[in-house]
Design a binder for these strands. Structure first.
Length: 284
DNA sequence: CAATAGCCCTGGTGGC
DNA sequence: TGCCACCAGGGCTATT
């Protein structure tokens, strides 16, 4: 569900709530979400330990514990991390409940249960070849970071034989973009989602670079995008859906030229674009 | 490598 | 109102 801006908002909301709190008990309602290690080791490693900090890398959330355990969480499509006050209502799709020493609880809830929760020791985190959290260890640079530059974007488009949209969705090239923000960035940069990455010009690279950083920072500023399931750690909706250019706007007028937005499938994903603003070169 | 399909799941929506 | 096919913000794996 959540892409980088949504995960960023979740982590920002999480920290004031969990930082310094000790986990007093863990209720595991859906054990299949815990991919590593086994349920008992998971509980033993965390109960009576203090959460130092929550952080984000790409679409992953990480909790660092005082015994050097790291909990790596991916929310996939419908996962939520909810900070629930003492006596507060437990989400009906709660999968794992971390009870904290002040009576509150941190609840992992997930309607479709596609999310993943893994616990690594400090040495497993350093080792990277532990066989778990593979996606976490191979993440590319973050939008808005020093490492993400127009030159970097140029480099990955030059060495890729495929279409631009599937490339931008690959987390090992760029961490954090998902289906919504990719469509939005391409719309703002006026690049067709099926454009062959190799043929993208320097001027377009420059526009795409700015557009990626813009959609991500706007998404964060708006508290994320909520269509149905996304909620921040307090259970509130985001607002960026009110400012989208193309995503989920099939048939509605383009905000630049008023041409109806079209929906196609690219790389197996629903894709929205303006057929007027985002054209393929004639020879493609 | 790139493209595609299948898979993990539930639930909302739109067509009939 | 009911039934049903389809679709969904992700990502791993296997196959061609």
């Amino acid at each position: 569900m959540p892409e980088m801006p949504e995960v960023e908002i979740i982590v920002r909301g999480l920290n004031p709530f969990v930082e310094g709190r000790t986990i007093t008990a863990i209720d595991i309602i859906q054990p299949t979400l815990i991919k590593y290690p086994d349920e008992n080791t998971f509980i033993e490693s965390l109960v009576n330990h203090r959460i130092i900090v929550a952080s984000r890398r790409g679409k992953y959330i990480r909790l660092d514990l005082d015994n050097d355990s790291k909990v790596i969480i991916h929310l996939r499509m419908t996962g939520k991390l909810l900070c629930t006050p003492a006596g507060g209502e437990i989400d009906k799709h709660a999968c794992i409940i971390f009870q904290l020493d002040n009576g509150t609880s941190l609840i992992y809830a997930d309607i479709r249960r596609l999310g993943t929760v893994e616990l690594l020791t400090a040495s497993e985190l350093t080792n990277k070849d532990c066989g778990f959290c593979k996606g976490y260890f191979t993440l590319g640079p973050e939008p808005l970071s020093q490492e993400f530059t127009p030159e970097y974007l140029r480099r990955i488009t030059q060495k890729n034989r495929g279409k631009i949209k599937p490339l931008l969705l690959k987390q090992n090239y760029l961490a954090g973009l998902g289906n919504i923000y990719v469509d939005e960035a391409l719309a703002i940069a006026k690049i067709h989602p099926e454009r062959m990455a190799l043929t993208i010009t320097n001027a377009e690279i420059s526009a795409l670079y700015k557009a990626i950083n813009k959609v991500i920072s706007d998404g964060i500023a708006d508290g994320g995008t909520t269509f149905r399931d996304y909620r921040n750690s307090s259970g509130e909706r985001g607002h960026h859906q009110e400012h989208l250019y193309v995503y989920n706007r099939k048939g509605e007028p383009c905000k630049f030229c008023h041409t109806p937005i079209e929906r196609i499938v690219v790389g197996g994903r629903g894709t929205h674009y303006c057929p007027q603003c985002q054209q393929l070169p004639i020879d493609e």
